[in-house]
Design a protein around this nucleic acid. Structure first.
Length: 550
RNA sequence: UGGCCCAUGGUGUAACUGGCAACACGUCUGAUUUUGGUUCAGAAGAGUCUAGGUUCGAGCCCUAGUGGGCCAACCA
Protein backbone atom coordinates (compact mmCIF):
# COMPACT_ATOMS: atom_id res chain seq x y z
CA UNK A 1 0.00 0.00 0.00
CA UNK A 2 1.23 3.44 -0.86
CA UNK A 3 0.64 6.24 1.60
CA UNK A 4 -1.96 8.03 -0.37
CA UNK A 5 -5.17 8.51 1.54
CA UNK A 6 -8.66 8.25 0.17
CA UNK A 7 -11.04 11.05 0.99
CA UNK A 8 -12.45 9.26 4.03
CA UNK A 9 -8.99 8.83 5.47
CA UNK A 10 -8.29 12.45 4.73
CA UNK A 11 -11.37 13.44 6.71
CA UNK A 12 -10.21 11.33 9.63
CA UNK A 13 -6.70 12.77 9.49
CA UNK A 14 -8.19 16.23 9.46
CA UNK A 15 -10.33 15.44 12.50
CA UNK A 16 -7.27 14.09 14.26
CA UNK A 17 -5.35 17.25 13.44
CA UNK A 18 -8.21 19.28 14.83
CA UNK A 19 -7.95 17.57 18.15
CA UNK A 20 -10.16 14.54 17.81
CA UNK A 21 -8.70 11.88 20.06
CA UNK A 22 -7.22 8.93 18.25
CA UNK A 23 -8.46 6.49 20.89
CA UNK A 24 -12.01 7.69 20.34
CA UNK A 25 -12.09 6.54 16.74
CA UNK A 26 -14.68 3.84 16.26
CA UNK A 27 -16.27 2.35 13.16
CA UNK A 28 -19.07 0.02 12.31
CA UNK A 29 -20.40 -2.14 9.52
CA UNK A 30 -24.21 -2.03 9.70
CA UNK A 31 -25.93 -4.56 7.40
CA UNK A 32 -29.64 -5.17 7.45
CA UNK A 33 -30.15 -8.92 7.90
CA UNK A 34 -32.60 -9.20 5.02
CA UNK A 35 -30.39 -11.00 2.52
CA UNK A 36 -26.89 -12.17 1.78
CA UNK A 37 -23.85 -9.94 1.58
CA UNK A 38 -22.43 -9.32 -1.89
CA UNK A 39 -19.20 -7.98 -3.35
CA UNK A 40 -20.50 -4.44 -2.91
CA UNK A 41 -20.71 -5.05 0.83
CA UNK A 42 -17.15 -6.31 0.77
CA UNK A 43 -16.11 -2.79 -0.15
CA UNK A 44 -17.88 -1.36 2.89
CA UNK A 45 -16.57 -4.14 5.10
CA UNK A 46 -12.99 -3.68 3.96
CA UNK A 47 -13.24 0.09 4.24
CA UNK A 48 -14.39 -0.03 7.85
CA UNK A 49 -12.28 -2.92 9.06
CA UNK A 50 -9.14 -1.65 7.36
CA UNK A 51 -9.67 1.72 9.01
CA UNK A 52 -9.99 -0.17 12.27
CA UNK A 53 -6.67 -1.86 11.64
CA UNK A 54 -4.95 1.30 10.50
CA UNK A 55 -5.99 3.36 13.50
CA UNK A 56 -6.18 0.45 15.93
CA UNK A 57 -9.81 1.35 16.51
CA UNK A 58 -12.76 -0.92 17.28
CA UNK A 59 -15.14 -1.90 14.50
CA UNK A 60 -18.60 -3.10 15.47
CA UNK A 61 -20.76 -5.40 13.47
CA UNK A 62 -24.19 -3.92 13.91
CA UNK A 63 -27.33 -5.44 12.50
CA UNK A 64 -29.74 -2.77 11.41
CA UNK A 65 -32.77 -4.85 12.31
CA UNK A 66 -35.57 -2.34 12.53
CA UNK A 67 -37.88 -3.94 10.01
CA UNK A 68 -39.06 -7.37 11.23
CA UNK A 69 -41.03 -7.90 8.03
CA UNK A 70 -37.92 -8.64 5.99
CA UNK A 71 -35.33 -9.77 8.48
CA UNK A 72 -34.43 -13.05 10.09
CA UNK A 73 -31.72 -14.76 12.08
CA UNK A 74 -30.61 -16.98 9.22
CA UNK A 75 -29.35 -13.90 7.44
CA UNK A 76 -27.67 -12.75 10.65
CA UNK A 77 -25.71 -15.98 10.86
CA UNK A 78 -24.72 -16.00 7.21
CA UNK A 79 -23.49 -12.44 7.44
CA UNK A 80 -21.34 -13.30 10.45
CA UNK A 81 -19.90 -16.31 8.65
CA UNK A 82 -19.08 -14.25 5.58
CA UNK A 83 -17.24 -11.58 7.52
CA UNK A 84 -15.24 -14.20 9.38
CA UNK A 85 -14.42 -15.89 6.10
CA UNK A 86 -13.02 -12.61 4.84
CA UNK A 87 -10.74 -12.70 7.85
CA UNK A 88 -12.04 -9.67 9.71
CA UNK A 89 -12.75 -9.58 13.43
CA UNK A 90 -15.36 -7.27 14.82
CA UNK A 91 -15.05 -5.71 18.19
CA UNK A 92 -18.62 -6.48 19.20
CA UNK A 93 -21.82 -7.66 17.61
CA UNK A 94 -24.61 -5.16 18.16
CA UNK A 95 -28.19 -4.93 17.05
CA UNK A 96 -30.31 -1.86 16.56
CA UNK A 97 -32.98 -3.93 18.31
CA UNK A 98 -30.85 -3.83 21.47
CA UNK A 99 -31.64 -0.14 21.60
CA UNK A 100 -35.41 -0.28 21.13
CA UNK A 101 -35.92 0.64 24.80
CA UNK A 102 -33.54 3.59 24.72
CA UNK A 103 -34.92 4.75 21.40
CA UNK A 104 -38.43 4.64 22.84
CA UNK A 105 -37.42 6.77 25.80
CA UNK A 106 -35.72 9.29 23.59
CA UNK A 107 -38.78 9.42 21.36
CA UNK A 108 -40.88 10.32 24.41
CA UNK A 109 -38.34 12.99 25.23
CA UNK A 110 -38.72 14.47 21.74
CA UNK A 111 -42.50 14.52 22.10
CA UNK A 112 -42.19 16.29 25.42
CA UNK A 113 -39.86 18.82 23.80
CA UNK A 114 -42.35 19.43 21.02
CA UNK A 115 -40.02 17.84 18.49
CA UNK A 116 -42.28 14.95 17.59
CA UNK A 117 -46.00 14.24 17.39
CA UNK A 118 -48.36 11.40 16.71
CA UNK A 119 -50.02 11.67 13.35
CA UNK A 120 -53.30 9.79 12.92
CA UNK A 121 -53.67 10.05 9.18
CA UNK A 122 -53.30 7.28 6.64
CA UNK A 123 -50.00 6.91 4.86
CA UNK A 124 -51.70 8.08 1.65
CA UNK A 125 -52.79 11.32 3.30
CA UNK A 126 -49.33 11.88 4.66
CA UNK A 127 -47.78 11.22 1.27
CA UNK A 128 -50.12 13.74 -0.31
CA UNK A 129 -49.10 16.42 2.16
CA UNK A 130 -45.44 15.77 1.60
CA UNK A 131 -45.24 17.89 -1.55
CA UNK A 132 -42.63 17.31 -4.24
CA UNK A 133 -39.00 18.32 -4.63
CA UNK A 134 -40.20 21.55 -6.19
CA UNK A 135 -43.34 22.12 -4.11
CA UNK A 136 -43.30 22.49 -0.36
CA UNK A 137 -45.36 20.16 1.79
CA UNK A 138 -48.16 21.18 4.10
CA UNK A 139 -48.49 20.59 7.81
CA UNK A 140 -50.40 17.65 9.12
CA UNK A 141 -53.65 18.62 10.88
CA UNK A 142 -52.30 16.73 13.87
CA UNK A 143 -49.05 18.64 13.96
CA UNK A 144 -50.16 20.84 16.82
CA UNK A 145 -51.83 18.15 18.80
CA UNK A 146 -51.06 18.70 22.51
CA UNK A 147 -47.94 16.84 23.55
CA UNK A 148 -49.83 15.11 26.37
CA UNK A 149 -52.13 13.63 23.77
CA UNK A 150 -49.18 12.51 21.63
CA UNK A 151 -47.54 10.91 24.63
CA UNK A 152 -50.75 9.12 25.51
CA UNK A 153 -51.26 7.86 21.97
CA UNK A 154 -47.63 6.88 21.60
CA UNK A 155 -47.84 4.88 24.83
CA UNK A 156 -51.00 3.19 23.59
CA UNK A 157 -49.32 2.42 20.28
CA UNK A 158 -46.54 0.74 22.17
CA UNK A 159 -49.09 -1.17 24.25
CA UNK A 160 -50.73 -2.55 21.13
CA UNK A 161 -53.96 -0.65 21.48
CA UNK A 162 -53.97 0.66 17.93
CA UNK A 163 -54.11 -1.02 14.58
CA UNK A 164 -51.31 -1.07 12.06
CA UNK A 165 -51.42 2.08 10.00
CA UNK A 166 -53.68 3.98 12.37
CA UNK A 167 -50.96 6.21 13.82
CA UNK A 168 -47.29 7.02 13.34
CA UNK A 169 -44.85 9.08 15.33
CA UNK A 170 -43.39 11.89 13.27
CA UNK A 171 -40.54 14.27 13.88
CA UNK A 172 -41.60 17.89 13.84
CA UNK A 173 -39.13 19.60 11.54
CA UNK A 174 -40.17 21.58 8.51
CA UNK A 175 -42.69 20.71 5.81
CA UNK A 176 -41.25 23.30 3.47
CA UNK A 177 -37.70 22.04 3.68
CA UNK A 178 -35.92 21.63 0.36
CA UNK A 179 -34.82 18.29 1.67
CA UNK A 180 -37.77 15.93 1.41
CA UNK A 181 -36.44 13.88 4.29
CA UNK A 182 -36.79 16.80 6.64
CA UNK A 183 -40.53 17.14 5.96
CA UNK A 184 -41.66 15.70 9.30
CA UNK A 185 -40.30 12.18 8.69
CA UNK A 186 -41.89 9.16 10.28
CA UNK A 187 -40.00 7.87 13.32
CA UNK A 188 -42.18 4.93 14.33
CA UNK A 189 -44.77 2.75 12.69
CA UNK A 190 -47.03 0.10 14.16
CA UNK A 191 -46.18 -3.41 13.02
CA UNK A 192 -47.75 -6.44 14.62
CA UNK A 193 -44.95 -8.66 13.52
CA UNK A 194 -42.61 -10.79 15.61
CA UNK A 195 -39.03 -9.72 15.52
CA UNK A 196 -36.29 -12.33 15.21
CA UNK A 197 -34.71 -11.10 18.41
CA UNK A 198 -37.30 -9.23 20.42
CA UNK A 199 -40.15 -11.58 19.59
CA UNK A 200 -43.50 -9.99 20.38
CA UNK A 201 -42.12 -7.45 22.88
CA UNK A 202 -42.68 -4.63 20.47
CA UNK A 203 -45.38 -3.70 18.04
CA UNK A 204 -43.92 -0.34 17.14
CA UNK A 205 -40.63 -0.22 15.29
CA UNK A 206 -38.29 2.70 14.69
CA UNK A 207 -37.49 3.79 11.16
CA UNK A 208 -33.95 3.70 9.80
CA UNK A 209 -33.28 7.40 10.19
CA UNK A 210 -34.36 7.48 13.78
CA UNK A 211 -32.50 4.32 14.72
CA UNK A 212 -29.27 4.63 12.83
CA UNK A 213 -27.63 7.79 14.11
CA UNK A 214 -28.84 7.08 17.62
CA UNK A 215 -27.30 3.61 17.45
CA UNK A 216 -24.07 5.16 16.27
CA UNK A 217 -24.27 7.56 19.19
CA UNK A 218 -24.87 4.80 21.72
CA UNK A 219 -21.91 2.83 20.39
CA UNK A 220 -19.76 5.97 20.26
CA UNK A 221 -19.09 5.52 16.56
CA UNK A 222 -16.86 8.36 15.41
CA UNK A 223 -17.28 8.01 11.66
CA UNK A 224 -20.42 6.49 10.25
CA UNK A 225 -19.69 5.58 6.67
CA UNK A 226 -22.40 4.80 4.20
CA UNK A 227 -23.10 4.92 0.50
CA UNK A 228 -23.91 8.00 -1.55
CA UNK A 229 -27.66 7.55 -1.68
CA UNK A 230 -27.74 8.35 2.03
CA UNK A 231 -26.32 11.80 1.50
CA UNK A 232 -29.72 13.51 1.81
CA UNK A 233 -30.22 11.64 5.07
CA UNK A 234 -27.26 13.42 6.61
CA UNK A 235 -29.32 16.49 7.59
CA UNK A 236 -31.80 14.28 9.37
CA UNK A 237 -29.07 12.19 10.94
CA UNK A 238 -27.60 15.32 12.42
CA UNK A 239 -30.95 16.80 13.40
CA UNK A 240 -31.91 13.72 15.41
CA UNK A 241 -28.57 13.71 17.20
CA UNK A 242 -29.05 17.33 18.13
CA UNK A 243 -32.33 16.54 19.85
CA UNK A 244 -30.98 13.95 22.25
CA UNK A 245 -30.64 14.70 25.96
CA UNK A 246 -26.87 14.72 26.35
CA UNK A 247 -23.91 16.79 27.37
CA UNK A 248 -22.17 18.20 24.37
CA UNK A 249 -20.06 15.24 23.46
CA UNK A 250 -18.56 14.10 20.20
CA UNK A 251 -21.33 13.28 17.82
CA UNK A 252 -20.85 10.63 15.18
CA UNK A 253 -20.21 11.93 11.72
CA UNK A 254 -21.89 10.48 8.65
CA UNK A 255 -19.87 10.49 5.45
CA UNK A 256 -20.77 8.94 2.12
CA UNK A 257 -18.82 7.10 -0.54
CA UNK A 258 -19.81 5.61 -3.89
CA UNK A 259 -21.00 2.04 -3.85
CA UNK A 260 -19.25 -0.57 -5.93
CA UNK A 261 -20.77 -1.76 -9.17
CA UNK A 262 -19.28 -4.42 -11.38
CA UNK A 263 -19.79 -5.26 -15.03
CA UNK A 264 -21.99 -8.21 -15.99
CA UNK A 265 -23.68 -8.45 -12.63
CA UNK A 266 -26.20 -6.77 -10.39
CA UNK A 267 -25.99 -5.68 -6.78
CA UNK A 268 -29.54 -4.88 -5.84
CA UNK A 269 -30.72 -7.29 -3.15
CA UNK A 270 -34.23 -7.02 -4.47
CA UNK A 271 -33.13 -8.10 -7.94
CA UNK A 272 -30.90 -10.84 -6.60
CA UNK A 273 -33.89 -12.10 -4.70
CA UNK A 274 -35.81 -12.06 -7.95
CA UNK A 275 -33.20 -14.33 -9.60
CA UNK A 276 -33.70 -16.86 -6.85
CA UNK A 277 -37.45 -16.50 -6.93
CA UNK A 278 -37.57 -17.09 -10.67
CA UNK A 279 -35.21 -20.05 -10.27
CA UNK A 280 -32.66 -18.49 -12.57
CA UNK A 281 -30.11 -19.42 -9.94
CA UNK A 282 -30.41 -22.07 -7.27
CA UNK A 283 -30.06 -19.83 -4.22
CA UNK A 284 -28.12 -17.01 -2.60
CA UNK A 285 -24.96 -19.09 -2.73
CA UNK A 286 -25.22 -20.12 -6.34
CA UNK A 287 -21.68 -19.83 -7.76
CA UNK A 288 -22.90 -17.32 -10.33
CA UNK A 289 -24.19 -14.93 -7.71
CA UNK A 290 -22.17 -11.85 -6.73
CA UNK A 291 -22.74 -12.80 -3.09
CA UNK A 292 -19.84 -13.68 -0.83
CA UNK A 293 -21.41 -17.10 -0.31
CA UNK A 294 -21.67 -17.58 -4.06
CA UNK A 295 -18.06 -16.61 -4.53
CA UNK A 296 -17.01 -19.01 -1.80
CA UNK A 297 -18.75 -21.81 -3.67
CA UNK A 298 -17.22 -20.60 -6.88
CA UNK A 299 -13.78 -20.97 -5.32
CA UNK A 300 -12.81 -17.32 -5.03
CA UNK A 301 -10.28 -16.91 -2.20
CA UNK A 302 -10.96 -14.22 0.44
CA UNK A 303 -7.79 -12.30 -0.35
CA UNK A 304 -8.85 -11.92 -3.95
CA UNK A 305 -12.04 -10.15 -2.89
CA UNK A 306 -10.21 -7.92 -0.46
CA UNK A 307 -7.42 -7.01 -2.87
CA UNK A 308 -10.04 -6.28 -5.47
CA UNK A 309 -12.10 -3.87 -3.42
CA UNK A 310 -8.97 -2.19 -2.11
CA UNK A 311 -7.79 -1.60 -5.64
CA UNK A 312 -11.23 -0.37 -6.63
CA UNK A 313 -10.68 2.46 -4.16
CA UNK A 314 -13.00 4.76 -2.31
CA UNK A 315 -14.31 7.87 -3.99
CA UNK A 316 -17.53 9.72 -4.66
CA UNK A 317 -18.25 9.14 -8.29
CA UNK A 318 -20.51 6.53 -9.77
CA UNK A 319 -18.47 3.65 -11.09
CA UNK A 320 -18.75 0.27 -12.72
CA UNK A 321 -15.56 -1.64 -12.32
CA UNK A 322 -14.46 -4.35 -14.73
CA UNK A 323 -15.21 -7.87 -13.60
CA UNK A 324 -11.86 -8.79 -15.14
CA UNK A 325 -10.08 -6.96 -12.33
CA UNK A 326 -11.69 -9.32 -9.83
CA UNK A 327 -10.71 -12.28 -11.99
CA UNK A 328 -7.16 -10.99 -12.08
CA UNK A 329 -6.94 -11.06 -8.30
CA UNK A 330 -8.60 -14.47 -8.18
CA UNK A 331 -6.00 -15.90 -10.55
CA UNK A 332 -3.17 -14.13 -8.81
CA UNK A 333 -4.09 -15.72 -5.51
CA UNK A 334 -4.96 -19.13 -6.90
CA UNK A 335 -1.77 -19.33 -8.93
CA UNK A 336 0.20 -19.17 -5.70
CA UNK A 337 -1.75 -21.73 -3.73
CA UNK A 338 -3.31 -24.27 -6.08
CA UNK A 339 -1.82 -27.69 -6.72
CA UNK A 340 -1.86 -28.58 -10.42
CA UNK A 341 -3.62 -31.68 -11.61
CA UNK A 342 -4.43 -33.12 -15.00
CA UNK A 343 -8.01 -33.40 -16.14
CA UNK A 344 -9.27 -33.99 -19.66
CA UNK A 345 -12.78 -32.71 -20.24
CA UNK A 346 -13.50 -33.56 -23.85
CA UNK A 347 -11.40 -36.60 -24.39
CA UNK A 348 -10.08 -38.41 -27.39
CA UNK A 349 -8.14 -41.66 -27.18
CA UNK A 350 -4.43 -41.58 -27.82
CA UNK A 351 -2.56 -44.81 -28.56
CA UNK A 352 1.22 -44.93 -28.42
CA UNK A 353 1.89 -47.63 -31.00
CA UNK A 354 5.49 -48.30 -30.06
CA UNK A 355 4.85 -48.45 -26.31
CA UNK A 356 4.74 -51.99 -24.90
CA UNK A 357 1.27 -53.45 -24.44
CA UNK A 358 0.41 -53.94 -20.79
CA UNK A 359 3.27 -51.85 -19.48
CA UNK A 360 2.58 -49.27 -16.82
CA UNK A 361 5.06 -46.83 -15.44
CA UNK A 362 5.13 -43.99 -12.97
CA UNK A 363 6.06 -40.45 -13.89
CA UNK A 364 6.72 -37.69 -11.43
CA UNK A 365 4.73 -34.47 -11.54
CA UNK A 366 5.46 -31.21 -9.76
CA UNK A 367 2.44 -30.10 -7.77
CA UNK A 368 3.03 -26.39 -8.00
CA UNK A 369 5.85 -24.73 -9.91
CA UNK A 370 5.20 -21.56 -7.90
CA UNK A 371 5.63 -23.32 -4.59
CA UNK A 372 8.27 -25.99 -4.22
CA UNK A 373 7.02 -26.92 -0.77
CA UNK A 374 3.97 -28.52 -2.34
CA UNK A 375 6.23 -31.32 -3.56
CA UNK A 376 5.55 -33.88 -6.24
CA UNK A 377 3.19 -36.72 -6.95
CA UNK A 378 3.21 -39.76 -9.21
CA UNK A 379 1.09 -40.25 -12.28
CA UNK A 380 0.46 -43.50 -14.12
CA UNK A 381 1.58 -43.64 -17.75
CA UNK A 382 0.76 -46.32 -20.29
CA UNK A 383 0.08 -47.10 -23.93
CA UNK A 384 -3.51 -45.83 -23.83
CA UNK A 385 -4.23 -42.30 -22.82
CA UNK A 386 -6.83 -39.58 -23.09
CA UNK A 387 -5.92 -36.20 -24.44
CA UNK A 388 -8.05 -33.16 -25.05
CA UNK A 389 -9.88 -33.38 -28.36
CA UNK A 390 -8.99 -29.81 -29.17
CA UNK A 391 -5.31 -30.58 -28.67
CA UNK A 392 -5.25 -32.59 -31.88
CA UNK A 393 -5.70 -31.53 -35.47
CA UNK A 394 -4.91 -33.58 -38.49
CA UNK A 395 -3.33 -30.62 -40.14
CA UNK A 396 -2.78 -27.16 -38.85
CA UNK A 397 -0.91 -23.99 -39.48
CA UNK A 398 2.28 -22.90 -37.77
CA UNK A 399 0.38 -21.16 -35.00
CA UNK A 400 -1.00 -24.42 -33.71
CA UNK A 401 1.49 -25.70 -31.13
CA UNK A 402 -0.32 -28.91 -30.35
CA UNK A 403 -0.51 -32.40 -31.77
CA UNK A 404 -0.77 -32.88 -35.52
CA UNK A 405 0.21 -35.67 -37.82
CA UNK A 406 3.94 -35.70 -38.31
CA UNK A 407 4.68 -33.18 -35.56
CA UNK A 408 6.12 -33.64 -32.12
CA UNK A 409 4.67 -32.50 -28.85
CA UNK A 410 5.48 -33.27 -25.23
CA UNK A 411 3.09 -35.05 -22.94
CA UNK A 412 3.51 -33.01 -19.79
CA UNK A 413 5.73 -34.78 -17.24
CA UNK A 414 6.22 -37.75 -19.60
CA UNK A 415 7.47 -38.30 -23.15
CA UNK A 416 7.74 -36.56 -26.44
CA UNK A 417 5.39 -38.09 -28.95
CA UNK A 418 4.90 -37.76 -32.67
CA UNK A 419 1.52 -37.89 -34.36
CA UNK A 420 1.32 -40.73 -36.87
CA UNK A 421 -2.28 -41.17 -37.95
CA UNK A 422 -5.83 -40.93 -36.78
CA UNK A 423 -8.79 -43.26 -36.93
CA UNK A 424 -12.20 -41.94 -37.94
CA UNK A 425 -15.71 -43.24 -37.69
CA UNK A 426 -18.27 -43.32 -40.49
CA UNK A 427 -19.10 -39.67 -39.99
CA UNK A 428 -15.52 -38.68 -40.44
CA UNK A 429 -15.02 -37.83 -36.79
CA UNK A 430 -11.68 -38.62 -35.28
CA UNK A 431 -12.11 -41.29 -32.63
CA UNK A 432 -8.52 -42.25 -32.00
CA UNK A 433 -5.11 -40.72 -32.51
CA UNK A 434 -2.07 -42.90 -32.97
CA UNK A 435 1.43 -41.76 -32.22
CA UNK A 436 4.91 -43.00 -31.45
CA UNK A 437 6.99 -41.93 -28.49
CA UNK A 438 10.65 -41.24 -27.98
CA UNK A 439 11.63 -43.60 -25.12
CA UNK A 440 14.65 -41.52 -24.19
CA UNK A 441 12.71 -38.31 -23.74
CA UNK A 442 11.16 -39.09 -20.38
CA UNK A 443 10.81 -36.00 -18.20
CA UNK A 444 13.30 -35.74 -15.42
CA UNK A 445 15.44 -38.61 -16.71
CA UNK A 446 18.37 -36.27 -17.18
CA UNK A 447 19.10 -37.59 -20.64
CA UNK A 448 19.87 -35.24 -23.44
CA UNK A 449 16.57 -36.27 -24.95
CA UNK A 450 14.59 -35.45 -21.85
CA UNK A 451 15.60 -31.83 -22.21
CA UNK A 452 14.73 -31.56 -25.85
CA UNK A 453 12.56 -28.59 -26.67
CA UNK A 454 9.39 -29.06 -28.60
CA UNK A 455 6.93 -26.39 -29.48
CA UNK A 456 3.99 -27.66 -27.47
CA UNK A 457 3.18 -29.44 -24.27
CA UNK A 458 -0.19 -31.02 -23.68
CA UNK A 459 -1.82 -32.67 -20.72
CA UNK A 460 -3.12 -36.22 -20.65
CA UNK A 461 -4.63 -38.89 -18.45
CA UNK A 462 -3.98 -42.64 -18.35
CA UNK A 463 -7.21 -44.33 -19.38
CA UNK A 464 -7.10 -47.37 -17.15
CA UNK A 465 -6.34 -45.57 -13.91
CA UNK A 466 -8.42 -42.49 -14.67
CA UNK A 467 -11.36 -41.36 -12.59
CA UNK A 468 -14.58 -39.70 -13.60
CA UNK A 469 -15.17 -36.15 -12.46
CA UNK A 470 -18.26 -34.00 -12.77
CA UNK A 471 -17.64 -30.37 -13.52
CA UNK A 472 -19.96 -27.40 -13.27
CA UNK A 473 -18.75 -24.75 -15.64
CA UNK A 474 -19.97 -21.21 -15.15
CA UNK A 475 -20.07 -18.18 -17.33
CA UNK A 476 -21.28 -14.69 -16.58
CA UNK A 477 -24.90 -14.59 -15.53
CA UNK A 478 -25.64 -11.60 -17.73
CA UNK A 479 -24.85 -10.88 -21.36
CA UNK A 480 -25.14 -7.18 -20.81
CA UNK A 481 -22.22 -5.22 -19.40
CA UNK A 482 -24.54 -3.14 -17.26
CA UNK A 483 -27.65 -5.27 -16.74
CA UNK A 484 -29.02 -2.94 -14.13
CA UNK A 485 -29.38 -0.21 -16.73
CA UNK A 486 -31.59 -2.42 -18.82
CA UNK A 487 -35.35 -2.16 -18.51
CA UNK A 488 -35.95 -5.87 -18.59
CA UNK A 489 -33.37 -7.65 -16.50
CA UNK A 490 -34.54 -11.07 -17.57
CA UNK A 491 -33.70 -10.30 -21.17
CA UNK A 492 -30.04 -9.84 -20.22
CA UNK A 493 -29.75 -13.26 -18.66
CA UNK A 494 -27.20 -15.58 -20.17
CA UNK A 495 -29.32 -18.70 -20.51
CA UNK A 496 -26.30 -20.97 -20.79
CA UNK A 497 -24.38 -19.65 -17.82
CA UNK A 498 -24.14 -23.10 -16.27
CA UNK A 499 -23.01 -26.26 -17.99
CA UNK A 500 -22.33 -29.58 -16.34
CA UNK A 501 -19.82 -31.81 -18.04
CA UNK A 502 -18.01 -35.03 -17.23
CA UNK A 503 -14.25 -35.27 -17.41
CA UNK A 504 -11.47 -37.78 -16.90
CA UNK A 505 -8.88 -37.10 -14.28
CA UNK A 506 -5.70 -38.62 -13.03
CA UNK A 507 -6.39 -40.90 -10.11
CA UNK A 508 -5.04 -38.53 -7.47
CA UNK A 509 -7.89 -36.12 -8.09
CA UNK A 510 -10.46 -38.43 -6.56
CA UNK A 511 -8.70 -38.13 -3.19
CA UNK A 512 -9.26 -34.36 -3.06
CA UNK A 513 -11.47 -33.09 -0.27
CA UNK A 514 -14.48 -30.82 -0.39
CA UNK A 515 -13.46 -27.19 -0.69
CA UNK A 516 -10.00 -27.99 -2.09
CA UNK A 517 -8.97 -25.58 -4.82
CA UNK A 518 -6.86 -26.87 -7.68
CA UNK A 519 -5.66 -25.91 -11.10
CA UNK A 520 -6.60 -28.22 -13.95
CA UNK A 521 -3.43 -27.80 -15.88
CA UNK A 522 -3.82 -25.64 -18.99
CA UNK A 523 -7.52 -25.15 -18.23
CA UNK A 524 -8.30 -23.14 -15.17
CA UNK A 525 -8.99 -23.17 -11.48
CA UNK A 526 -11.59 -25.43 -9.92
CA UNK A 527 -12.89 -26.19 -6.46
CA UNK A 528 -14.29 -29.44 -5.09
CA UNK A 529 -17.95 -28.65 -4.58
CA UNK A 530 -18.94 -31.97 -3.07
CA UNK A 531 -18.33 -35.69 -2.98
CA UNK A 532 -21.45 -37.79 -3.07
CA UNK A 533 -21.82 -41.55 -3.61
CA UNK A 534 -18.38 -41.88 -5.05
CA UNK A 535 -18.78 -38.93 -7.39
CA UNK A 536 -16.62 -35.88 -7.10
CA UNK A 537 -18.02 -32.63 -8.40
CA UNK A 538 -16.02 -29.51 -9.18
CA UNK A 539 -17.09 -25.95 -9.71
CA UNK A 540 -15.06 -24.01 -12.20
CA UNK A 541 -13.69 -20.88 -10.61
CA UNK A 542 -12.08 -19.13 -13.55
CA UNK A 543 -10.16 -20.00 -16.70
CA UNK A 544 -6.48 -19.56 -17.05
CA UNK A 545 -5.57 -16.46 -18.95
CA UNK A 546 -5.49 -17.48 -22.58
CA UNK A 547 -3.34 -15.54 -24.96
CA UNK A 548 -3.88 -17.91 -27.84
CA UNK A 549 -6.05 -16.66 -30.61
CA UNK A 550 -7.27 -19.23 -33.11
C1' U B 1 -39.42 23.27 -12.35
C1' G B 2 -36.12 22.76 -6.62
C1' G B 3 -32.02 21.00 -3.70
C1' C B 4 -27.65 18.10 -3.08
C1' C B 5 -23.51 15.15 -5.17
C1' C B 6 -20.25 13.92 -9.20
C1' A B 7 -17.22 14.66 -14.04
C1' U B 8 -9.20 12.53 -15.31
C1' G B 9 -6.79 6.90 -21.09
C1' G B 10 -11.53 1.32 -22.55
C1' U B 11 -12.35 0.45 -16.84
C1' G B 12 -11.16 1.83 -11.72
C1' U B 13 -8.23 4.99 -8.86
C1' A B 14 -3.83 8.82 -8.21
C1' A B 15 -1.50 13.65 -8.89
C1' C B 16 0.95 16.46 -1.11
C1' U B 17 -1.07 23.16 0.58
C1' G B 18 -1.82 25.24 -8.11
C1' G B 19 4.39 23.65 -11.21
C1' C B 20 3.68 20.56 -18.44
C1' A B 21 -1.04 13.60 -15.84
C1' A B 22 0.76 8.40 -12.62
C1' C B 23 -0.61 3.28 -11.00
C1' A B 24 -3.50 -1.22 -11.71
C1' C B 25 -6.64 -4.09 -14.86
C1' G B 26 -7.46 -4.64 -20.03
C1' U B 27 -5.05 -4.32 -25.08
C1' C B 28 -0.56 -5.08 -28.17
C1' U B 29 4.99 -6.55 -28.95
C1' G B 30 9.15 -9.46 -27.56
C1' A B 31 12.03 -12.89 -24.19
C1' U B 32 11.79 -17.09 -20.90
C1' U B 33 8.88 -21.44 -19.95
C1' U B 34 7.76 -29.29 -19.96
C1' U B 35 0.84 -25.10 -18.46
C1' G B 36 -0.38 -20.68 -25.39
C1' G B 37 -0.26 -20.25 -17.39
C1' U B 38 3.53 -17.76 -14.38
C1' U B 39 7.73 -14.47 -14.77
C1' C B 40 10.47 -10.62 -17.31
C1' A B 41 11.23 -6.47 -20.83
C1' G B 42 8.65 -2.99 -23.66
C1' A B 43 4.56 -0.35 -26.49
C1' A B 44 0.10 1.97 -27.73
C1' G B 45 -3.77 4.65 -25.42
C1' A B 46 -6.16 10.70 -21.90
C1' G B 47 -3.88 16.58 -22.37
C1' U B 48 -8.16 15.96 -17.49
C1' C B 49 -16.80 17.47 -20.11
C1' U B 50 -17.36 22.76 -22.47
C1' A B 51 -16.71 28.10 -22.26
C1' G B 52 -14.90 32.02 -19.66
C1' G B 53 -12.05 33.97 -15.36
C1' U B 54 -7.95 34.38 -11.42
C1' U B 55 -2.54 33.33 -11.87
C1' C B 56 4.04 33.74 -14.33
C1' G B 57 1.60 28.95 -14.30
C1' A B 58 -4.92 25.21 -13.30
C1' G B 59 -6.87 18.48 -13.71
C1' C B 60 -6.69 21.10 -8.96
C1' C B 61 -9.34 27.77 -7.34
C1' C B 62 -13.94 30.98 -9.19
C1' U B 63 -18.37 31.58 -12.58
C1' A B 64 -21.70 29.75 -16.13
C1' G B 65 -23.14 25.83 -19.10
C1' U B 66 -23.39 20.57 -20.47
C1' G B 67 -23.76 15.52 -18.96
C1' G B 68 -24.69 11.82 -15.12
C1' G B 69 -26.50 10.34 -10.16
C1' C B 70 -29.60 10.94 -5.74
C1' C B 71 -34.13 12.89 -3.15
C1' A B 72 -41.49 12.82 -2.89
C1' A B 73 -41.66 3.71 1.43
C1' C B 74 -45.32 3.69 7.69
C1' C B 75 -37.71 0.04 3.31
C1' A B 76 -32.65 0.18 4.74
Amino acid sequence: MSNYKNFIEQIIEEDLNNGFKRNELCFRFPPEPNGYLHIGHVKAIALNFELGKKYNAPVNLRFDDTNPVKENSHFVEEIKKNIKWLGYKWSKVCYASDYFGQLYEWAQYLILNDKAFVDSQTSEQIALQKGTPTNPGVNSPYRNRPREESIRLFTEMREGKHKEGSHVLRAKIKMSSQNMLMRDPVMYRILFKDHHRTGSNWCIYPMYDWAHGESDFIEKISHSLCTLEFKPHRDLYEWFLQQLPKENKNLPKQREFARLNMTYTIMSKRKLFHLIDKKIVSSWDDPRMPTISGMIKRGYPPNALINFVKKAGVAKRENTIDASLLEFYVREELNKICPRVMVVTNEIKLVITNYPEGKQEKVEAINNPEDESQGTREMVFSKYLYIEREDFRETANRKFFRLTIGKEVRLKNAYIIKGEKCVKNKNGEVIEVQCTYDPKSKSGSNSEESKRKVKGTIHWVDIKSSAKVIINEYERLFLNEKPEENEDLIKCINTSSKKTIVGKSEKYVSSLKKGQKVQFQRKGYYIVDNKKNGNITFNKTVSLRDGWRK
